[in-house]
Design a protein around this nucleic acid. Structure first.
Length: 636
RNA sequence: GCCACCCUAGCUCAGUCGGUAGAGCAGCCGCCUUGUAAGCGGCAGGUCGGGAGUUCAAUUCUCCCGGGUGGCUCCA
């Protein structure tokens, strides 16, 4: 609510006409009025007052009383005046606020004159002109616990800091060459990008924030058409639904990432999804992490939903008894979910979500030297993992590295070694000082067809949080030391892995190649199609030859062409057609998606082909009924 | 969150200069028994995203809300 206070000799007004069509008639005697020696309050009720008109009226009454007290007047004129605010309440709630305010002031012993709401009025006013006679205030209702309006998001110090952040950009090539970048005429300059177009697009995205394409990301249509993932209007934006086939793929990715991180040596733990705002360490951590939180009201406190696994693992680590002999030491959790209340317009399909699944692995290391060494160990884990998920490295990604100037000066060799290992030039953002809890952070960014970049794998060297959370280890002398902490997400958010796979497939479509998932992720690996109903029984028996393979059977009585088409639209990698010939020969006619060829082979041979190509990856059985005719449609 | 645009059958889309809507595919029923990306016929299917307003009449015009897309901002 906004109020303009005027201490007046007199105020006179006269109704000239209705301002709102919906407003009721008023009696003749209310159509004009005059007050003398009064405190006039021009009032605008605002949107935010609608939630609790009573509380708004109460807060306003308190303010008016405060001002009236200083002016020693008991006479108050309330004058509805819409022009004080650009965010007005709707007429009904506004009238409710004003009525409640009038009643409240009456109760407090004031003589209250209220001019009518919803009418144009002419007025004359004589203002006294002393220092207190003109005054405006913006009044916000105090939140009472029972009806508290929770802030939709928390904007913390880190977010604000990031907005002020000044940084400088460079390209670091594999020979250690360091090229400062600048923006000239909207284009990134300072490095010859001729052989590195995607790095150019990434730098352009990061530095100039300008987009060259303005299209819907192709993965959105694909995720829907393939019945993998879809929007869920019944939830909050950025919280998606997964259909059986999407759940299958996501589940396999989740299992695979976790498997690899355990093999690397991390210990898997599980932590709560919500945390107390008032916990001292968390409170200060929140202010160093640039993210917006979901806020939840528990029965007796306000909590935020985790946006990563960091604090859960830190709270465990602070209670652990640790020796230098045990470091480096890693804890791991696959967070389903991590929550970030991203701004509405930032959400995009699977690229940017409010609820996402992030593998998060924190390693405690003794010092910078061990941090650097161990970061490279983890880099190899992530490298192999993404390769085995179906990506080409380093081709499919661009490194963005953020580093503080002091770290660069002291450990530039490490950064150069990293670029050499990566095998292509990397983009470096350098900060003159340490704004966040890390001194170095890298991300592997997938740059899509629309020149949008999305970070997948990321690791950081954290120099602050051990102190903040009280995490210590005993060194050789038995003295307590604060370790450094590495923050690795080996694959990045699982949803983003799926996003990148779909975007890659979309690029294949554009290039005239058949789009595919890696075999171990294909919802159907082998589709058996009988030529006609006569072969259906034989085809049914054939399923038994594909133990350990996701094989299904098109038992509809559609034509062969139609059944082939259906399988192709589902991206089935191996389509087995069974007719009279095959029954007689005992061989299968296999339509191979990747080569578009038809090949003759035995059932055993095909099974072995699939088993070999998926060895070492997790397996899940079919997500839906083995018979096509028994499957529902989730989405046309 | 801000600015712009979009929302019609399960899906993809027509359409109504304001008089409550149509196609293809999918679904169901029947015929066909199929040789490598859509066989034929019939039936059924809609609070035209939700609410309010203007109007004799709103899917159509206006406003609000929701969902989505693009841009800004921002990130795993």
């Amino acid at each position: 609510m906004r109020v303009l206070f005027l201490h007046v000799d007199y105020l006179e007004y006269e109704v000239t006409g209705k301002a709102l069509k919906s407003i009721g008639e008023i009696p003749q005697e209310r159509k004009h009025g005059r007050v003398e020696e009064a405190l006039v309050c021009f009032l605008s009720a605002e949107k935010r007052d609608e939630k609790d008109p009573k509380a708004a009226a109460l807060a306003a009454a308190k303010n008016i009383e405060d001002v009236a007290g200083q002016l020693h007047t008991k006479r108050i004129a309330l004058y509805p005046y819409a022009h004080l605010s650009s965010d007005l309440a709707a007429p009904e709630p506004a009238q409710a606020v004003l009525a409640a305010l009038e009643a409240e002031l009456g109760k407090r012993g004031y003589e209250v004159h209220a001019s009518p709401f919803g009418y144009y009025k002419s007025f004359r006013v004589s203002v006294k002109g002393h220092p207190l006679s003109e005054l405006s205030r913006e009044i916000v209702a105090e939140a009472t616990p029972a009806v508290a309006e929770e802030p939709k998001e928390m904007v913390n110090e880190a977010l604000k800091a990031e907005q002020r952040l000044v940084s400088h950009w460079h390209v670091l090539d594999t020979q250690g060459g360091f090229h400062p970048l600048s923006i000239e005429a909207g284009r990134v300059a300072g490095f010859d990008f001729a052989a590195h177009d995607r790095l150019r697009r990434f730098a352009q995205y990061e530095m100039a924030k300008s987009r060259e394409v303005k299209e819907e990301p192709p993965h959105v249509r694909l995720m829907q058409e393939l019945e993998l993932v879809d929007y869920e209007p019944g939830s909050d934006p950025g919280n998606l639904r997964y259909y059986p086939k999407g759940r299958l793929i996501k589940g396999l990715l989740e299992e695979f990432v976790s498997q690899r991180v355990r093999e690397y040596g991390a210990m898997e733990v599980e932590c709560p999804v919500m945390y107390d705002f008032e916990h001292p360490a968390l409170k200060s951590y929140l202010n160093r992490f640039p993210a917006r939180q979901y806020v939840v009201q528990t029965p007796n406190k306000r909590a935020f939903l985790r946006f990563s696994a960091c604090f859960g693992q830190f709270l465990i680590m602070k209670d652990m008894v640790l020796s230098y002999k045990q470091l480096p030491l890693s804890l791991y959790e696959l967070t389903r979910y991590s929550f970030r209340a991203e701004q509405r317009g930032e959400l995009a399909g699977l690229r940017r979500l409010r609820a996402f699944t992030m593998p998060d692995c924190h390693a405690l290391v003794t010092d910078v030297a061990q941090a650097k060494e161990h970061m490279m160990v983890r880099m190899e884990v992530a490298w192999k993992l993404l390769q085995d998920c179906g990506f080409s490295l380093p081709d499919d990604f661009e490194v963005g590295m953020r580093v503080t100037e002091p770290f660069w000066k002291e450990h530039g060799d490490f950064v150069k070694a990293y670029a050499r290992r990566w095998g292509k030039p990397i983009l470096i953002e350098m900060w003159s000082e340490q704004f966040f809890y890390f001194v170095l952070k890298y991300e592997w960014n997938f740059v899509d067809a629309n020149d949008k970049a999305a970070a997948l794998t990321t690791d950081q060297i954290d120099t602050e949080n051990a102190k903040r959370f009280g995490i210590t280890y005993a060194d050789e002398k038995g003295e307590k030391q604060f370790p450094y902490i590495l923050h690795l997400s080996p694959s990045g958010a699982v949803e983003r892995v799926l996003y990148a796979l779909l975007e890659k497939a979309a690029a294949d479509i554009k290039a005239g190649k058949p789009p595919m998932f890696p075999l171990w992720l294909s919802p159907t690996q082998v589709r058996i199609i009988p030529v006609s109903g006569d072969q259906l029984e034989h085809a049914r028996k054939l399923l038994a030859a594909f133990d350990g393979v996701r094989a299904d059977l098109d038992d509809t009585n559609d034509t062969l062409g139609k059944k082939i088409r259906r399988a192709e639209k589902e991206w089935v990698p191996y389509i087995v057609v069974v007719g009279k010939k095959e029954i007689e020969s005992g061989k299968l006619n296999v339509r191979v998606r990747s080569t578009k060829a038809q090949e003759e082979m035995t059932p055993d041979r095909l099974r072995k082909l699939v088993m070999d190509a998926t060895a070492g990856r997790p397996f899940r059985p079919l997500a839906e009924n083995v018979l096509i005719s028994a499957r529902p449609i989730f989405r046309g």
